[in-house]
Simulated assay, not measured.
Amino acid sequence: MAVTIKDVARQANVAPSTVSRVIADSPRISEKTKKRVRRIMDELGYHPNMNARSLANQTTQALGVIMPSSANKSFQNPFFPEVIRGISSFSHIKDYSLYMSTGETEQEIFEGVVKMVQGKRVDGIVLLYSRVDDPVTKYLVEQEFPFVLIGKPHHISEDITYIDNDNYSAGREVTEYLISLGHRQIAFIGGSPDLMVTKERLAGYREALKLADLPLPDDYIFYMEFDREGGQQAVEQLMSMPEPPTAIVVTDDLMALGVLSTLAESGHMVPDEVSVASFNNVIFSELASPPLTSVDVRIFQLGYEAAKSLIERVEQPHFAPKSIIVPYKIVRRQTCKQIVKDQLCTS
């Protein structure tokens, strides 16, 4: 026979309504009582009826996760499984499930979000990207629907909860690191120019060059897809220039893999001829050949904090929007070297 809420209440010597409040994580119940009731639930093997709870509370106990493109494209990049792992980790603690939506085009992504909101399929939404003049963000603000951005909002940031790194400072710092190694011809390979992460890191790169009184050549800046092919295409063009760069800032590790493989295939030694620094520090960064210098943006923490902030907004709507800046650090490996005179270099 299935264990009921009354069985738990009897064993814990509390009212069934108290057990219900523990299941709902009500602030009216002390932590001591919550721990005791939950322990008894575990001992008895009681599992709350989440559907009944959702109907009673007019909630779904689900969060929407919006990818920036199709699942096929997104999951090729290790950033997205890792950030979803962070989202899932906190959501599991709070008994929320995840409802993912993707689309081949921006219109399909937008339509998927509208279906989530109008169909009351989720209690809140995590956007895994931030884009200039994004219709999804605008729609969610207009609908006053709980959502959190991973990335810096383009506008109205005071009305939006977001989780991000200081990408401007990270872009500047990694460029300054290459400048400190003697590099003066430094290229930049970013994602789409309408993505805020690209804009912020590019702004930091430009500022570092400006402060070092170095030229800002437009032909050294490329906007490509966040995949290996994007990195390959960009570096092919860069290395065919009359004055190719001696160092490259790449805004994504998967793109950087394409850069490294293309440089190797074309006979350019890394880091002896070209230094490469990237972002995200995904699992294969240290396994690359050579191991890749990369900015660790703490991807898991970005996802964890996003889920935590969103559930907070769902359960306590009066809370004001906030921003959380997750710290980063440059992990220096073997793709960057000191330059010697006009050539490249020794350790």
Rank of each mutant, 00 (worst) to 15 (best):
D253R: 06
A234V: 14
V122Q: 00
F319V: 06
I189S: 03
G204C: 08
L55E: 04
M116P: 08
M224I: 11
I93E: 13
G258R: 12
K32A: 14
G112Y: 14
P242Q: 03
D342Y: 02
S97D: 09
Q232L: 06
F147V: 01
G182K: 04
V117G: 12
H47C: 10
P321V: 12
T33F: 05
Q118M: 03
H154F: 06
P215G: 14
P215W: 15
A264K: 15
I156E: 14
S309T: 06
I84A: 02
P271L: 09
P78L: 03
M67D: 00
L302H: 07
G103V: 04
D166N: 15
V22N: 09
Q233G: 03
S30T: 14
P327T: 13
Y168E: 12
I93Q: 15
R298H: 14
D42S: 04
I93W: 00
K199L: 12
D272T: 03
K138H: 12
G191K: 00
T33M: 13
K308Q: 13
L287C: 06
Q185W: 12
A307P: 07
R53P: 00
A320H: 08
A256V: 11
V331N: 10
G231E: 01
K73A: 12
L263E: 07
N13I: 02
T102W: 10
N13P: 01
D164N: 13
D134Q: 13
I40D: 00
P327Y: 09
G191E: 07
E225T: 10
V14F: 10
I93V: 10
